[in-house]
């Protein structure tokens, strides 16, 4: 292996990092920056979903519940506790991790299909309650006027109030980095190997000393915590929380991102998130044609079906197959040289 080839993954990450940090400075216009924030949010959302769905194989269709409830926690408790951005985020994260633990212990009693549909039932209940418990959530009238984050700059009297989308963007970056690092660390270690073992054959996993429940819970709790934090960010970003934040449509989007991109692969999920959030907007922008949502949805549905039929490992699987072929053909050439 040449030095460059060995360095390449690092170079890619550094280049990606620079891009993520510099891009918004170039395009800080309202529309572009919103798309970028959206993309980052979907990255966090999808990675924490994929930790369970792609690696451990437990597809919870109820993931939006952590997002929505996390947002409501910030909206309802934030003003009462006066915690500030970091406090709100940590509170939502830890309570959602706790909820994931409790829900996990309960729901992991059943497996596969029953688990997926059970969690789906739970998110529907959560949404119905958000919609109908007027005293608590205001129902469809939403909780409004959530405080924007403020940071006191040390050693000065200046308080920085986060207002502009650009500021929110940089506020979100740490959560994205944290999520990617944690995802990478967990899935590329021995834990990741145990995850795959559980996904492929729970009985066999028990027979080599892996306790499936433990690893299912681990991925579920970490994912729930991260999404809780994301929900808290969302509340403080748009300053309104509505029952629609606990929407089933989020589940669909997650499935599209993860399965079109490539379940269980960091590259795949990143690609999926970027394509999903950027492509439709680019189409709208570039062609000056506005695609009605219904047509967009039809396209999503068709893409899902086509991917399942023709690229079962998603875009990432396709890339992997192509690079494998390329490496093989090179190996052969090298072999002939020698």
């Amino acid at each position: 292996m040449t030095a460059l080839a060995r360095a390449r993954p690092w170079l890619l990450w550094v280049a990606g990092g620079v891009l993520v940090l510099a891009l918004p400075l170039q395009y800080s216009g309202g529309y572009a920056i919103n798309i970028m924030i959206n993309t980052l949010m979907w990255i966090v959302f999808a990675l924490s979903f994929d930790l369970s769905a792609g690696h451990v194989g437990t597809v919870s269709l109820g993931h939006p519940a952590f997002f929505g409830i996390g947002a409501y926690l910030t909206a309802l408790l934030g003003p009462r506790l006066g915690l500030g951005y970091l406090g709100n985020t940590l509170l939502s994260a830890s309570l959602m991790a706790l909820l994931a633990l409790v829900a996990g212990v309960a729901f992991f009693r059943v497996r596969e299909v029953s688990f997926a549909i059970g969690t789906l039932g739970a998110v529907i209940i959560a949404q119905l309650i958000a919609n109908n418990a007027y005293d608590l959530t205001g129902g469809p009238l939403c909780v409004k006027g959530i405080a924007r984050p403020e940071f006191a700059i040390p050693f000065t009297d200046v308080t920085l109030k986060v207002i502009h989308p650009l500021q929110y963007y940089y506020l979100l970056v740490p959560l994205v980095v944290f999520t990617i690092v944690l995802y990478k660390a967990m899935t590329s270690s021995r834990i990741g190997r145990a995850f795959i073992a559980v996904r492929e054959d729970e009985v066999r996993a028990s027979a080599v000393g892996i306790r499936p429940l433990r690893y299912k819970l681990l991925a579920f709790v970490v994912g729930g915590g991260i999404i809780g934090a994301l929900g808290s960010f969302q509340a403080q970003y748009v300053t309104v929380v509505c029952p629609s934040e606990i929407a089933l449509s989020y589940t669909l989007n997650l499935l599209i991102i993860v399965f079109v991109g490539g379940a269980g692969s960091l590259r795949g999920v990143l690609l999926g998130s970027v394509i999903f959030s950027v492509l439709p907007r680019l189409l709208e922008q570039g062609g000056a044609l506005s695609i009605p949502p219904a047509y967009q949805q039809v396209a999503y549905g068709l893409i899902l079906i086509l991917v399942v039929l023709f690229m079962p490992d998603g875009i990432d699987g396709q890339i992997r197959r192509m690079t494998d072929k390329w490496h093989r053909s090179r190996e052969v050439e090298v072999g002939e040289d020698v």
Binding site: V59, E112, L255, L302
Partner: peptide, 15 residues
């Protein structure tokens, strides 16, 4: 696997 089934039929449902 059932995961693939779920994704495919959800796609059909959306369409």
């Amino acid at each position: 696997s059932w995961r693939i089934h779920a994704v495919a039929t959800l796609g059909i449902s959306i369409v």
